[in-house]
Design a protein around this nucleic acid. Structure first.
Length: 153
DNA sequence: GCCAACGTTGGC
DNA sequence: GCCAACGTTGGC
């Protein structure tokens, strides 16, 4: 059982969208980075938990918790020429890109802002806080996870 | 809108 | 395989 942090732009797809979807479950498409794909494929398991992070918005930060409810499977948007995630080099017989399904578990009453995270010494070393980090999904240690949960209190 | 940082591409 | 050029990300 692993912990993760998953980034998304709320103007594209935010926690409100997930909350509105059927059974509060949706697929996480559009991953087009090999490092992230490999983590998804090799390390992410059904039952894992992830922090839901809003980026590129007025107040970046963690807004909730999701559970991985389906392991990695082909990202169909790569095969759709009308999708902005279309990739003509992804062969349906040997898909290049993968996605998982997530279910909303908890929606925080207030955001744990990026600012608050930076000012918490227990979170030093979190990948999301590292300079130049560009991965949309990053691993979170059990200790970091607990520190985040503690910040809710 | 700026810009630092990093990934990807493609010529050689 | 190197590396310059380009594209993207994301906080500010």
């Amino acid at each position: 059982m692993n912990y993760w942090l998953m980034k998304t732009e709320p103007s594209v797809y935010g926690i409100d969208d997930l909350a509105r979807s059927r059974k509060k479950t949706d697929h996480w498409d559009g991953i087009r980075n090999y490092q992230v794909r490999n983590m998804l494929r090799d390390d992410m398991q059904k039952g894992d938990l992830a922090l839901f992070y809003h980026s590129s918005c007025p107040e970046p930060g963690i807004v909730g918790i999701v559970e991985i409810v389906r392991q990695a499977y082909p990202d169909h948007t790569a095969f759709d020429p009308k999708s902005k995630y279309f990739d003509d080099k992804s062969d349906p017989n040997n898909p290049r890109w993968l996605m998982v399904d997530v279910r909303l578990k908890k929606r925080f009453k207030r955001i744990i802002s990026l600012k608050a995270m930076r000012s918490n010494p227990a979170l030093t070393g979190m990948r999301i806080l590292a300079k130049g980090n560009r991965l949309s999904i990053t691993p979170v240690s059990a200790q970091q996870w607990q520190s985040i949960v503690d910040m809710l209190a």
